[in-house]
Simulated assay, not measured.
Amino acid sequence: MATLTEEDGKWLLTCHIVASDYNWPFCEISINFFNEQEQPTGQGIDLSSFTSVYVKARYINQEHNSLRFQLRNFNPLYGQFDDQGTWKYVGIEFWPQRSPQANEIPLKSLQVASWWIAEQKLPIKYAVPEFTNVMMLELSTGNNIQPGQYVIELEHIKFTGKYFTNNQVLLFLISLWACSAVGFLFFNLSWSRKQLIETKSKAEELRQLNQLLNVKTKELKDQAERDPLTGALNRAGIKTIFTKELEVLSVMFIDIDYFKSVNDRYGHTVGDEVLKAFAKLISNNCRFTDFLARWGGEEFLLVCPNTSLKDAYDLAQALRNIISHHQWIQDIQLTASFGVAQQGDESPTAFIERADKALYDAKVRGRNQVVISEY
């Protein structure tokens, strides 16, 4: 859990880190430099003219813990605006000083996260820090943080460089303090205020910037709950279903038969459209109490609360028939294999593995069929 409050001109981020299966728990303040409410343009801000950033932040209830300062840069040559996972992670971990001075971080000391480079499989020429189109700024707890209660005090974040423009300074500061009164901004940026009120166009510019920028504090989860392609839940999103007390719970693993041949023959764009249509077809033909998750690739998991094994089997057979007779894009012929299981006195992991084994058996038996796993 995380909350953000303002006190005496300073921001207090209160975090409760709990032990979990996720190896890198954290909480953060995230500042967006793009408007999520309007049509996305992929346009952030250019910080390439700055040389250093001064971060005046510290833990006020813990010592010897690190903070992580991070910028997220979007480059359309290799990234996708609607997939934040493709925005480049450029950051550094530091231990805040206990002094009246802010922590100076030279921008040249920021590094691209090696795990992100490996995940995106980028060419070497793109594996360097970029600051020309920064979409997001993040200040978070550092690595290896232990479970407990943490309070981070943030007084300010200031960028410095040889060349300053009124637009650049306002763009950063307004995004940081958008949730405060405009008068509070004027008080802290008096020199900017004097320039803004000189002309009517400058006042209009401030109004537009104030509309376009927002500061958002969020309670972070280990992963996003929705698959960005199909809109179905992902593994993190479906996890909570297995923590509920249900007398009867059945699941079915669903795998599109020979899906690789679709990508090979028609291309990945058509393959993505098939996946989206497949998820929609399943959702439209199961009960509103059922939960669909994309498990990975062309494999889906349908969780059916309060459903017996027989009812789950009947539903799987009905879905199998609907899939095989559906009119797919470009007249592609599709079938699917199903593995069905009902939860017994076992862990959720063992339960899902049984359904997965039944799916494997369905493939071995020739695909386009339903196999039940008996407990």
Score class of each variant (00 low, 15 high):
residue 78 Y to T: 05
residue 150 Y to D: 00
residue 122 L to I: 06
residue 133 N to K: 00
residue 99 S to P: 03
residue 111 Q to K: 10
residue 116 W to V: 04
residue 168 Q to R: 00
residue 54 Y to M: 06
residue 103 N to F: 06
residue 141 T to P: 00
residue 107 L to R: 02
residue 61 N to S: 04
residue 66 S to C: 10
residue 52 S to P: 11
residue 132 T to K: 06
residue 62 Q to G: 06
residue 87 W to F: 15
residue 114 S to Q: 15
residue 141 T to L: 00
residue 121 K to M: 09
residue 161 G to N: 10
residue 56 K to N: 02
residue 75 N to I: 10
residue 59 Y to S: 00
residue 131 F to T: 02
residue 63 E to K: 06
residue 182 V to A: 14
residue 88 K to W: 12
residue 165 T to V: 04
residue 101 Q to L: 11
residue 178 A to I: 08
residue 166 N to D: 08
residue 90 V to I: 15
residue 130 E to T: 08
residue 136 M to F: 14
residue 159 F to V: 09
residue 113 A to N: 08
residue 155 E to G: 03
residue 139 L to H: 06
residue 134 V to K: 00
residue 119 E to Y: 15
residue 114 S to K: 12
residue 116 W to H: 06
residue 173 L to A: 06
residue 90 V to S: 13
residue 118 A to I: 14
residue 51 T to G: 09
residue 141 T to G: 00
residue 146 Q to C: 05
residue 76 P to E: 12
residue 130 E to Y: 11
residue 85 G to P: 12
residue 148 G to Y: 11
residue 107 L to S: 06
residue 109 S to Y: 15
residue 65 N to M: 03
residue 170 L to M: 02
residue 151 V to G: 01
residue 177 W to P: 01
residue 171 L to V: 01
residue 146 Q to P: 04
residue 144 N to G: 09
residue 176 L to W: 07
residue 111 Q to E: 15
residue 122 L to Q: 02
residue 175 S to F: 04
residue 123 P to D: 08
residue 112 V to K: 04
residue 122 L to H: 05
residue 115 W to D: 14
residue 100 P to M: 10
residue 153 E to H: 02
residue 58 R to V: 05
residue 92 I to S: 09
residue 159 F to S: 04
residue 81 F to M: 03
residue 68 R to A: 07
residue 102 A to R: 01
residue 105 I to P: 04
residue 68 R to V: 11
residue 142 G to R: 00
residue 144 N to Q: 11
residue 57 A to G: 02
residue 141 T to W: 00
residue 159 F to D: 09
residue 100 P to L: 12
residue 66 S to H: 12
residue 83 D to V: 14
residue 54 Y to E: 09
residue 76 P to G: 05
residue 147 P to C: 03
residue 64 H to W: 13
residue 117 I to A: 07
residue 114 S to I: 15
residue 87 W to E: 12
residue 172 F to R: 00
residue 107 L to P: 04
